[in-house]
Design a protein around this nucleic acid. Structure first.
Length: 657
DNA sequence: TCGCACCGCGCC
DNA sequence: AAAGGGCGCGGTGCGA
C-alpha cells in the first residue's frame, strides 16, 4: 500500500519513496519560510510535497502550529514589509494548538536523495528552478537532470499570456481553486491542515499539468526549443547559487559620494526654481516648467506628449499639463533655462543612486540585495515574449554602461572571485548577423564575409561612398541608426532624431536605403507574409524553432486598427531577429556549461554577453572555452555568417570595454 | 495601507 | 502622414 497525503513517519516516507523510484517522473514543490523566501539559495524549507502516478505525499518539516484553534493572542502589528508599526499597536490573531511531531529534515532529505540524484527520473515543478535551488542546499547536491518546468512549458506554448501561474492554470484547466488566503506567501502563519492541503494541491496539479504539457510540447513541434530551455536550467541554478561577487566597501563609498552630490544638485534646482518642491514628482515638474510665469513658474512651452497624452489626443480628449512629457529630450530642448539644466543633472545622479546603489545596499525598510558579498539575481526564462532572459531582484541587465563615468563606477563594483579574473565575451552585431544569415547574398552579407563593419557598410551604401571613406560620425549616426530602423522598425521621426538630421533628410535616407538594400525590405515582407499564412494565429519561428505568435497581425485593416497592425508587424519581424539571438546565447550557455572547468563559473548573461569568473591560472583556458562555446562549429552551423565575439578579461566588470 | 497606472530611464 | 523591438524598477499619486 502506497502512502498518500501527509507523511509523519519514517516508514511511510520510505514506502512512498520506494514507489516514486519505480516511476519515470515526479513533480515536487517546496514551501519556504523565514526572511529570505524570495532568495532560494537562503530560504528555509518548511514543507515539501511530491506527486507522481497515483500518489501525492506532503511532508511537513518545520511547521510551527497545528490546526485546532485554542484561543486568541495579541501580536504586534506589522507592515507587509515586516517592519513593526510600533510597540503600542497589537492585533488579535487565533492561537493554534501545537503542531504534530514532524520528521527530521536531514533524515527526510537523506531518504529523498536517491530520487533527486536519479539520472533517469524527470523532476518537474512550477518555476522549478526555485525549488531545485532550495533543495540543493538540503540535499548537499544539485538535483540531477532531466528536469521539466510547467511554467516554462506554458510559456513556450503561449509566450504572450501574462498569467501563467499554477493557480490560474489549475482554475482554467480543472476549474479548481485551492488557495483562498495566499498560503504560499506565508505558510507558517496558516493552520497545519490548510498548508498541507495547499502543498498537496501544488504538487498534484503540477503533476497533472506536466502530463498534458509534455504532450502539447511534442505535438506543437516545440520539443527542440523546450529541450534547450530545460538544458539551461542547470546553468541557471549554478548562476543563482554562486551569484556575482560585489565590492561592498566600494559600493558604500559610492553611496556616500552620490548622496552628497544629490543634495547639492537638489539645492541647484530649488535655487533655479525659486522654491522648493518634490523633484521626483512629474505633476509638480510639469507645473513648474510649463506653468505661467506670472505664477512663479518657468512658462516654458511644452511640446512632447506622454504616452497617455498621445492616447488622449487620438481620442480628441482634453489635453492638460500633466499630459506633456518632462523627459530628458524635452529638458534638453531648453538649453538656456537654468532649471531645466539643473533637472537634467539631478536626474542622472539620483536615478543611479536609487536604482543601483541604495536598493542594492538596502534601507531600514527594504532588505539588501547583497548577501555574503554577492548578488544572486534571478534570470527568468519565461520573462519575455521573444525568448530572451529577463533579470530581476535586482535587474543586472540594465546597469549603466562603463562608457559613462557613472556606469564605470557601478560596474567596477562587480568583481571576480578572489584570486581570479572576470572573462567577459559578447557577440558582435548579433542581430545583424542573424538578419544577414536569413537574407544571404546582398551587401550586408558581403560585409560580414569580408570582415567589413556592417554599420560602416550601410552608411557607405546610403552615402554612395567607399566604406573606407565613411567617417566615425557617419557610421554612428547613419549606419547604426539605419540598422536599428531595420531591426526595430523605426519610423521617420525616430530616424531623424537619432541620425541628427531633418525629417525630409530622413525620408530621403530611408528611400535610399530601400533602393540600396532591396533584399532586406523584400525579406521583411516575406517574413510577414509567411507569418500571416499561419492561421488561426500568425506566428514566426526562430533559428531553433521558438515560436512567436502575433494575433494582431490578423486584425482587419481599418483606419483605427492601422497602428496596431503596424505595431504587430514590427513585433513580428523583431521577434525573428531578437528571438534568434536569444536562441544562440542560450545554446552558447549550455555549451559553455558543459565544457567550463569546475573552478570557473558563469555569473552573468546579458542578451549577447556572458561573464565568467575564472581562477588566475586558468584564464587562458577559460577564454578558449568561452570562444569555442560561443563560436565553435556546433553553434556556427546555425548561421551562415561567421559568428564573432569580443572578449575581455579584467578584475572588474568596469575594466572591460 | 496597498495595489495599480503612469512616467521616466537604465540596458541590449 | 506616421510608425521603436524587448525588458525591470523607482517614484508619485490615485482609488479601492
Amino acid at each position: 500500500m502506497v502512502p498518500q497525503g501527509v507523511i509523519l513517519t519514517e516508514d511511510s516516507l520510505r514506502l512512498a519513496v520506494n514507489y516514486f523510484l519505480t516511476r519515470d517522473s515526479f513533480s515536487f514543490d517546496v514551501e519556504s519560510s523565514g526572511d529570505y523566501r524570495d532568495q532560494p539559495h537562503l530560504a528555509s524549507i518548511s514543507w515539501i510535497s511530491l506527486a507522481t502516478y497515483g500518489c501525492c505525499i506532503v511532508i511537513p518539516l518545520d511547521h510551527p502550529i497545528g490546526t485546532k484553534v485554542i484561543g486568541t493572542k495579541k501580536v504586534p502589528m506589522k507592515y507587509k514589509t515586516g517592519k513593526k508599526i510600533g510597540e503600542t499597536y497589537f492585533k488579535a490573531v487565533p492561537e493554534y494548538e501545537g503542531p504534530p511531531e514532524q520528521l527530521d529534515l536531514a533524515l527526510v532529505f537523506g531518504i529523498l536523495a536517491p530520487l533527486f540524484s536519479h539520472p533517469k527520473i524527470v523532476k518537474t515543478g512550477h518555476d522549478v528552478i526555485y525549488d531545485l535551488v532550495v533543495v540543493s542546499k538540503y540535499l548537499g547536491f544539485v538535483p540531477v537532470p532531466p528536469y521539466f518546468d510547467t511554467k516554462i512549458a506554458f510559456w513556450t506554448l503561449n509566450e504572450n499570456r501574462m498569467r501563467n501561474g499554477l493557480k490560474e492554470w489549475t482554475e482554467e484547466r480543472y476549474d479548481h481553486k485551492y488557495d483562498f488566503e495566499n498560503v504560499g506567501k506565508c505558510a507558517e502563519s496558516h493552520p497545519f491542515d490548510t498548508v498541507a492541503y495547499y502543498s498537496y494541491c501544488d504538487s498534484k496539479f503540477d503533476w497533472l499539468h506536466y502530463k498534458w504539457l509534455k504532450q502539447q510540447i511534442a505535438d506543437q513541434g516545440l520539443q527542440k526549443i523546450y529541450d534547450l530551455e530545460m538544458n539551461i536550467l542547470n546553468v541557471l541554478i549554478g548562476m543563482r547559487l554562486s551569484g556575482v561577487r560585489i565590492d561592498v566597501e566600494k559600493l558604500k563609498q559610492l553611496r556616500a559620494d552620490l548622496r552628497v552630490e544629490v543634495v547639492q544638485l537638489e539645492g541647484n534646482i530649488y535655487a533655479a526654481a525659486g522654491k522648493k518642491f518634490n523633484i521626483n514628482s512629474n505633476p509638480q515638474k510639469q507645473q513648474i516648467l510649463f506653468g505661467k510665469k506670472s505664477e512663479g513658474n518657468q512658462g516654458l512651452k511644452p511640446w512632447k506628449l506622454t504616452a497617455k497624452g498621445r492616447e488622449i489626443k487620438d481620442a480628441n480628449g482634453k489635453l492638460e499639463l500633466i499630459h506633456y512629457s518632462t523627459d530628458d529630450e524635452v529638458l534638453a530642448s531648453y538649453p538656456d533655462n537654468p532649471l531645466a539644466h539643473a533637472m537634467r543633472e539631478y536626474g542622472d545622479v539620483s536615478k543611479i543612486l536609487s536604482t543601483y546603489v541604495e536598493s542594492w545596499l538596502g534601507t531600514e525598510d527594504e532588505p539588501a540585495k547583497i548577501y555574503d558579498g554577492r548578488i544572486h539575481a534571478g534570470f527568468l526564462q519565461y520573462g519575455t515574449v521573444t525568448g530572451r532572459f529577463s533579470c530581476r531582484s535586482p535587474n543586472l541587465q540594465n546597469l549603466p554602461r562603463s562608457s559613462s563615468d557613472m556606469g564605470k563606477m557601478i560596474r567596477d563594483v562587480f568583481i571576480s572571485e578572489p584570486g581570479g579574473k572576470l572573462v567577459v565575451a559578447d557577440y558582435s552585431q548579433i542581430e545583424l548577423v542573424i538578419l544577414a544569415h536569413y537574407i544571404g547574398e546582398g551587401k550586408l552579407y558581403e560585409a560580414f564575409m569580408q570582415g567589413i563593419d556592417p554599420h560602416t557598410m550601410t552608411a557607405a551604401m546610403v552615402l554612395g561612398k567607399d566604406p573606407a571613406d565613411v567617417s566615425k560620425v557617419e557610421r554612428q549616426d547613419l549606419g547604426k541608426t539605419l540598422g536599428f530602423a531595420v531591426v526595430y522598425g523605426a519610423g521617420l521621426g525616430k530616424v531623424a532624431s537619432m541620425a541628427h538630421i531633418t525629417f525630409d533628410e530622413a525620408k530621403r535616407v530611408l528611400k535610399t536605403h530601400e533602393r540600396m538594400f532591396p533584399e532586406i525590405h523584400q525579406f521583411k515582407q516575406d517574413v510577414l507574409d509567411l507569418a500571416r499564412s499561419r492561421q488561426p494565429v500568425p506566428y514566426i519561428t526562430t533559428l531553433m524553432g521558438r515560436k512567436r505568435r502575433v494575433p494582431d497581425l490578423n486584425m482587419e485593416d481599418t483606419y483605427f486598427n492601422r497602428k496596431y497592425i503596424m505595431g504587430a508587424e514590427r513585433q513580428t519581424f523583431n521577434s525573428l531577429i531578437q528571438g534568434g539571438a536569444a536562441d544562440l546565447i542560450k545554446l552558447a550557455m549550455v555549451r559553455l556549461d558543459a565544457t567550463l572547468p569546475d573552478e570557473a563559473k558563469l555569473v552573468l548573461s546579458v542578451h549577447d554577453e556572458l561573464a565568467i569568473t575564472a581562477p588566475d591560472g586558468m584564464v587562458f583556458e577559460v577564454e578558449n572555452t568561452v570562444r569555442e562555446a560561443m563560436t565553435g562549429a556546433g553553434i556556427q552551423k546555425l548561421v551562415r555568417v561567421p559568428l564573432r565575439i569580443d572578449l575581455h578579461t579584467g578584475d572588474r566588470w568596469g575594466d572591460i570595454k
